[in-house]
């Protein structure tokens, strides 16, 4: 479980950027979406989501804006910026190379 948490910690930024490529979302929506897509595998300590979001915003990879949610109340929606798209592409390329290399080592040949 601790290993999963460490892996999640290292991938949080990429996961958030990937989710935001489809639509602008607010924090709670992001948590639920992440849980849903990973079928409950990724479970955040939810308070840690905001430092990650604010760091990405500070780096100019996403932009936050208060706007009304479907339930009527204002929520802070985050959308990915052009710099965010570029950063995500770079991370995806890096991730594909890394996961391919790990698979080649972990999975014995011929299986």
């Amino acid at each position: 479980m601790d290993n999963d948490r460490e892996l999640l910690k290292g991938s949080t930024d990429s996961l958030l950027l990937a989710l935001l490529t489809e639509q602008a979302m607010y924090g709670y929506q992001l948590v639920k979406e992440l849980e849903r897509r990973s079928q409950g595998y990724f479970q955040f300590r939810e308070g840690t989501l905001y430092p990650a979001l604010h760091r990405l915003e500070k780096d100019g990879l996403i932009a936050g804006k208060w706007q009304p949610s479907p339930v009527g109340k204002d929520r802070r929606y985050y959308s990915i910026t052009d710099a965010g798209h570029a950063a995500l592409q770079a991370r995806l390329t890096q991730w594909r190379g890394f996961s391919k290399a790990v698979s080649q080592v972990l999975v014995p040949s011929g299986i």
Partner: peptide, 15 residues
Amino acid sequence: KFGTPVAVAQELSHV
């Protein structure tokens, strides 16, 4: 689920 107020506040202050 959100975490302790101190830990969350410290992380946010750091960011």
